[in-house]
Amino acid sequence: MRPLTEDDIRSAIVNASSDEMRVMAVPADVLLADWDHLDFYAWRDPRSRDRGYIVIEVDGEPRGIVLRAANGSSHARAAMCNLCHTMQPADQVTMFSARKAGEAGEHGDSIGTYICADLSCHENVRLAAPLAPNEIRASVDRRIDGTRHRTESFVSRVLETAGSRR
């Protein structure tokens, strides 16, 4: 991923209201990020436990989305992240939703999926050994490629209506 500044990140977010953009907290370590080894940049907002962000390059341009974490808890013992396909204890995977960009989002349309609660998918797939005994054993490179593809696909689904209105 190419290096991004705070301004780049803010201008990449496509599904945020003006109020959400005003209160968005970009991590201070953005300047220290190892962009050569990031497939996407994701973080939880330290000021709001229910908000997170993902920025990824789509068609060579940075595109970002605001995520909302669902409230509540699961009675399951384990859950799988739909981005990195990592099995984890259920409390470490959260349902996140993203309001669609453009007119659809203004009408309340959203998309949801289960994601690692701390949004650390890009780190989890780089672990050499599987995190759970029943996890499919795939090469690290294939896991990285798969995570990037699924993350880009999720962000693209949020952007679907925005592309035709640009």
Rank of each mutant, 00 (worst) to 15 (best):
R2T: 13
L4M: 15
L4H: 05
E6H: 06
I9H: 07
I9G: 03
A16T: 05
S18K: 11
V23W: 10
M24G: 11
V26P: 01
A28F: 03
A28T: 09
D29Y: 05
L31A: 12
L31M: 02
H37A: 12
F40N: 06
F40K: 01
R44N: 14
S48L: 09
D50A: 08
G52D: 00
I54M: 08
I56G: 00
E61P: 00
L67Y: 03
L67F: 09
R68K: 12
A70C: 05
M80Q: 12
H85F: 11
A90D: 08
V93R: 10
M95E: 06
S97I: 04
A101H: 02
G102M: 05
G102Y: 04
G108M: 09
D109T: 04
T113C: 14
Y114F: 10
Y114W: 06
Y114M: 11
I115Y: 02
D118A: 12
D118L: 13
S120C: 13
C121V: 09
C121F: 10
H122F: 06
R126T: 07
L127S: 12
R137Y: 13
V140P: 02
V140H: 01
D141P: 12
R143P: 01
H149V: 07
E152Y: 00
V155F: 00
G163T: 12
R165E: 15
